[in-house]
């Protein structure tokens, strides 16, 4: 008889009955596809056309033009590429650090645990905006450094989460057995512990993308994010600040796209939580 996967069923149920979740999934598919395939559109995002600068939205330029006459709509779409890329790669960085630290801490315990958790305390003692700006100065401004900087300062929550999950996973029989027969700790961790905490990681990852996109936009807005020729949603908003009076439409589109994207990733994370914590949602449904 085929075993029913109740957890998966719960997620599917949640998806079918939650209109916001459906919207989030569709929106994310669309925005990711658009970001990938926008390079095939035959409009150059950097084509300067001074005659038509700061024009209001029209049929030729759907969202008007910016201060150098560049088509704003296409620039926003290209900006989305940068924002999403930063979001995903910063998430990968922070998940990698967080999971490694959390696993080591939970698995080995004792002095290793103590040291690593103090490290987490150090990193969480300073507001991220201060830390990130200080570190942002050290690296040359660019896509790579902003990804590293965001990743370096957002892994603490994940490390704590993973640590507590590992602490309980460590007590399961199959892990105990693997340790008993003398498997190498690295193999026990990757082969037995990691798969059991994987759903937790996925859930944390979706929320992490959302917060990375927010952080990137704030940094770019303060002028310490991605550098000039490249543009993200945050830096487009920074640019539009000067022209707020003349061209308010420039502030609208990137902002709305940030909201929708972050909202959708958060929503997706909520839905995936059903898989990780079935008890919570089972209770919610009955009420």
């Amino acid at each position: 008889m085929k075993k029913r996967n109740r957890r998966l069923e719960n997620v599917v149920y949640e998806f079918k009955h939650n209109k916001q979740a459906i919207f989030a999934a569709i929106y994310l598919c669309v925005i990711i596809c658009v970001s990938i395939f926008v390079v095939f559109v035959n409009i150059d995002p950097d084509a300067i056309d001074v005659v038509h600068k700061l024009e209001f939205p029209s049929s030729a330029h759907w969202f008007g033009t910016d201060d150098m006459g560049r088509d704003y709509f296409i620039r926003v779409l290209y900006g989305g590429r940068v924002s999403l890329l930063v979001g995903v790669l910063a998430m990968v960085t922070s998940i990698t650090i967080g999971v490694t630290v959390g696993m080591m801490s939970g698995y080995f315990g004792g002095i290793v645990d103590n040291l690593l958790m103090r490290l987490v305390d150090v990193f969480s003692s300073i507001p991220w905006i201060i830390m990130v700006t200080v570190f942002g100065l050290l690296f040359k401004r660019g896509l790579f450094s902003i990804i590293i900087v965001i990743g370096l300062f957002s892994w603490m929550g994940i490390a704590r989460l993973v640590r507590s999950e590992v602490l309980s996973a460590k007590e399961r029989e199959y892990v105990q057995y693997a340790r008993f027969i003398g498997r190498h700790p690295a193999r026990v961790m990757t082969g037995h512990v990691l798969p059991s905490i994987f759903p937790t990681i996925i859930t944390a990852a979706t929320a992490e993308i959302a917060s990375a996109i927010m952080m990137e936009s704030a940094l770019s807005f303060l002028g310490i994010g991605v550098a000039a020729p490249m543009s993200s949603w945050g830096s487009l908003l920074q640019g539009s600040q000067q022209y707020l009076q003349k061209a308010p439409y420039m502030a609208v589109l990137p902002g709305i796209l940030i909201i929708l994207t972050v909202y959708s990733f958060n929503k997706l994370g909520d839905v995936l939580r059903v898989f990780v914590e079935p008890k919570i949602t089972a209770g919610e449904k009955n009420e």
Partner: peptide
């Protein structure tokens, strides 16, 4: 709250500035 959490503060500030300032 969901929308508020997803909204960058500076964007909201810009919108407020545009309407009430300009």
């Amino acid at each position: 709250c969901s929308v508020g959490i997803s909204m960058p503060t500076f964007w909201f500030a810009m919108i407020v500035m545009y309407f009430f300032g300009y």
